[in-house]
């Protein structure tokens, strides 16, 4: 077992990561005894497991993921939802809360084309399009707040190790933040200024996802912009 590349380094597709009987993690593949990366990303080692956290890439649905998407079409028994994946998601009317059985009322009274919904992926496999549900606490139509769209590959960084980044963001900006695994982030703040700081911080995470000490830099940035706003506030008052 020999590690060839340095952990936490940026690796290119086809770059040699390790030799020997490591366990294969995401975005790594084996050729003979050698393990290579299959994406541009950051090499991570977890015990014996070698994997690469990609720096780029679109969203691929997984059952259980929380996603935010926009209604694009209304059918007879459900909605089509754009969840920023290569596959269009289906939200059947039976997966909305409320009484079961045949519905008489128009589906567009629940969700109309263009509405933003927060949903969970109920099922997805290679052969069928993802199936959504809005049954559950907090799920359903998103009527307020701000929508921030970032690359889905940056979502793990936005959440951070054991949620360190996102909990810091919520605390420092005093906003409620919901992260969709598909790269759609919803922000609700007490004031437009608070929301603006949170949105700026989220974009900063996206831009600098691959750098070290990012959590501290983001915290600095937030406290600086809060100070600027306080100064501006006293001047106008």
């Amino acid at each position: 077992m020999v590690l060839v590349a340095e952990p936490k380094q940026v690796v290119a597709p086809g770059e040699l990561l390790a030799e020997g009987d490591h366990l294969l993690g995401d975005n790594a593949y084996r050729l003979g005894t050698k393990i290579f990366s299959d994406s541009i990303g950051i090499l991570e080692i977890d015990g014996n497991r070698v994997f690469v956290v990609p720096l780029k890439g679109g969203y691929i649905p997984r059952a259980g993921d929380l996603v935010a998407g926009r209604i694009v079409d209304i059918g007879l028994s459900g909605w089509s939802v754009d969840i920023r994946a290569p596959y269009e998601a289906m939200l059947p009317a039976s997966e909305t809360p409320g009484p079961r059985g045949p519905r008489r009322r128009d589906l567009s009274t629940s969700f109309d084309v263009g509405d933003m919904v927060l949903a969970e992926i109920l099922a997805f496999d290679r052969t069928r399009d993802p199936l959504l549900t809005v049954k559950g606490p907090g799920l359903g139509k998103v009527a307020s707040g701000r929508v921030v769209e970032i690359s889905a590959a940056k979502i793990p960084r936005l959440i951070g190790r054991k949620g360190s980044m996102i909990s810091m963001l919520k605390k420092e900006t005093d906003c409620q933040i919901t992260v969709g695994q598909n790269g759609v982030v919803l922000v609700w703040g007490k004031s437009p200024d608070a929301e603006r700081v949170a949105v700026e911080a989220i974009y900063m995470v996206e831009r600098e996802a691959h750098t070290r000490g990012l959590t501290d830099r983001i915290r600095d940035m937030i406290s600086r912009s809060k100070m600027v706003e306080q100064v501006a506030g006293t001047q106008t008052a």
Partner: peptide, 11 residues
Amino acid sequence: LADAGIPMREM
């Protein structure tokens, strides 16, 4: 292709 983050064996 690599820049798009598409998994590939190598360039």
